[in-house]
């Protein structure tokens, strides 16, 4: 209730102030009496100027020709960067970026100007040709290693899938030769692991042969525990090292 009363009072005050302001603005200014102008002499002709560019679109490195003509001008200035020019003329330029050329004609009758814009397009960099994967990249992507259980050279279910995918790839490159490397984890003797790695490589090769890959495309080598993929002493690492690894033949 108190608020409403207060607001109403404020509103009344505002009305009063506005009304007072309007009254002030309407107060009439005193009028000065001016004499009519004398008749003027014939004025000098105004200069005219014309500027054209041909072509107006260039690629960076190409050139364009500016052509201009003028009347009633005593001096002509072409900008940017060129300066005084004759009343008529042409000039070949190779702007490196879009430029608006302006020619200003000045004479006794005043001045005039004309402008022309030359657009410069930057040639696109040679389009990146669509990336063609190399054979090695395809090999690395498609060929899957086969992993083995501890002390075993039997083809597990997951190895079966991996080798089937490998076989599919090898079928599409019938000329390709492949080295099948047998690897083992660090447990057991050097000698025993050389033998075990040999059995793993042979088992992987045998499986590929059973899928139709000719045996003479597949060479085996055992590295035992001599070329580990992973060097920690834990099962995750050991599993990485128990495998038949494929390398594209030379």
């Amino acid at each position: 209730m108190w608020n409403r009363t207060h607001a109403r009072a404020l509103f009344s005050t505002l009305i009063a102030v506005v009304a007072l302001g309007a009254a002030c603005a309407k107060k009439p200014a005193p009028q000065a009496q001016t004499p009519p102008p004398p008749p003027a002499a014939e004025p000098p002709a105004r200069p005219t100027v014309n500027l054209q560019a041909s072509p107006t679109f260039i690629q960076r490195g190409q050139s364009t020709t500016l052509t201009w003509s003028s009347t009633n001008a005593t001096s002509l200035t072409l900008s940017p960067g060129i300066g005084a020019v004759a009343a008529e003329g042409k000039q070949t330029l190779s702007p490196t970026e879009a430029t608006t050329y302006t020619i200003t004609a000045t004479g006794p009758g005043g001045s005039a100007d004309a402008s022309v814009r030359v657009s410069v397009t930057v040639p696109p960099p040679p389009a990146p040709s669509a990336h063609e994967p190399t054979l090695q990249e395809l090999f690395d992507k498609e060929v899957k290693d086969a992993y083995f259980d501890y002390d075993k050279a039997d083809i597990r279910a997951d190895a079966r899938d991996a080798l089937s995918q490998t076989a599919q790839f090898l079928r599409s490159y019938p000329q390709m030769k492949v080295v099948v490397e047998g690897h083992c984890d660090e447990r057991g003797s050097t000698e025993y692991n050389l033998a075990l790695g040999d059995r793993r490589a042979a088992a992987a090769k045998q499986f590929l042969v059973s899928l139709g890959i000719p045996a003479d495309r597949l060479e085996t080598v055992s590295y035992g525990k001599e070329r580990p993929f992973c060097s920690a002493s834990n099962e995750a690492c050991w599993q990485q090292n128990r495998r038949a690894h494929f390398v594209m033949g030379k």
Binding site: E191, L194, A195, D198, R199, A202, S222
Partner: peptide, 8 residues
């Protein structure tokens, strides 16, 4: 040891 005939 040899796997010349297949098995080590």
């Amino acid at each position: 040891m040899s796997s010349m005939y297949g098995n080590p």
